[in-house]
Design a protein around this nucleic acid. Structure first.
Lengths: 193, 193
DNA sequence: AAATATTCGAATTGATTGGTCGACAATTCG
DNA sequence: CGAATTGTCGACCAATCAATTCGAATATTT
């Protein structure tokens, strides 16, 4: 058989799908168990509570996002491409995540603190990444801006602004077109020539 | 103010959205009421029970589908176009409906009889429509087949076969390409030249 | 102003659900 | 082997939830 940690992962992935579909409150332990074809009590051998599963799921999803972003940056060389890739993958992933978090918070704000914590941690990481790209870009003289924290923050704020329509749930929001627009703005001022 | 029947319709539309998202069981009267910005008890002035709302919603959705199909047929003249339009709109609508019914039946098979009833009624109607198009097509000598009930049934069976992947929930199923394939098969044998 | 239509807070009642417990099966290890 | 450990699960419990009722209050019509 597989070891305990592997099994926890299985539960996280399986439960994650249900949480993302129905939200925290509407997801029952019975459902999670049934999806895994095991007794409800057995789940409690791996996790202390429903909340613990939920938190593990959120951590897990956050990690997936982190990895996607890292590989997106590593896959190209020029600072311009790195920035483009980062913005694109980030927005694509958030589109998925937004749907997920919307379901989670639907009428249930208990986990706000926890999510806020994850989010602010992610924000700090993102700022660091942006600064790295900026540093690289200014050093190679392809960006028109300085590599100050202020610039990085400005970009981050723009990105966050793009998230808002995602949380309206309406699927009619066309991410691609908005993304192209913002990329244009971003690089119009940032990229030399 | 609006009259009682109008308000029932409002409830049907609003509740329909929630039912389609969460399914019958996971949808609460509280939610339905809150979405309508009214007290839960007030809903019971318009409907006897949650089930009655649900059934009204299903009837309502079925009617929308009926209308879409009727206009799709009326919008063109030639039997070939009618057939193409019918198949296309039907599959498009079922894509939406499948998602809806999947949510409804998720772990809840109580309404199976009711839905079966609606469905079999719809099937009979569809058969009649198909026969009409076939009759028109053979009369104008654009179809290669007879206008027997057997032919209509064969087409209907093919259409039903196309529904199956819709009920797998997986969004990866590419309806368009499958649709084109089936249309080709359908018309290869049916349409003259 | 009486009758009627509509709304809703509060109560009820049965079902659901997160979590526990102890029994038991499987596996590991000495 | 046999005993400790690991893992599974059915049955149960207390708390909460959720559908429905009721009666009183407010609006509207007659």
């Amino acid at each position: 058989m597989i070891n305990k940690e592997e099994f926890r992962k299985k539960i996280i992935v399986s439960a994650g799908k249900i949480f993302s579909r129905y939200g925290f409150k509407k997801t029952t332990m019975d459902e999670i168990a049934k999806a895994l074809k095991m007794g409800k009590s057995s789940i409690y051998y791996y996790f202390e509570s429903k909340e613990e599963i939920f938190e593990a799921v959120v951590l897990w999803e956050a990690n997936i996002l982190r990895n996607e972003l890292t590989t997106a940056i590593k896959s190209v060389d020029s600072p311009t491409d790195k920035m483009k890739n980062y913005v694109f993958v980030r927005m694509k992933s958030f589109e998925k995540l937004a749907n997920y978090y919307n379901a989670i918070f639907d009428k249930n704000l208990d986990h706000f603190d926890f999510i806020e914590h994850i989010r602010s941690k992610y924000d700090r990481e993102e700022l660091a990444i942006l600064r790295l790209i900026l540093y690289d870009g200014t050093r190679k003289k392809v960006f028109n801006v300085d590599n100050s924290e202020y610039t990085a923050l400005a970009i981050q704020t723009t990105l966050k602004g793009l998230e808002v329509p995602l949380f309206w749930k309406k699927k009619e929001v066309n991410i691609e077109s908005r993304l192209n627009a913002i990329l244009g703005v971003l690089f119009y001022g940032i990229v030399k020539k």
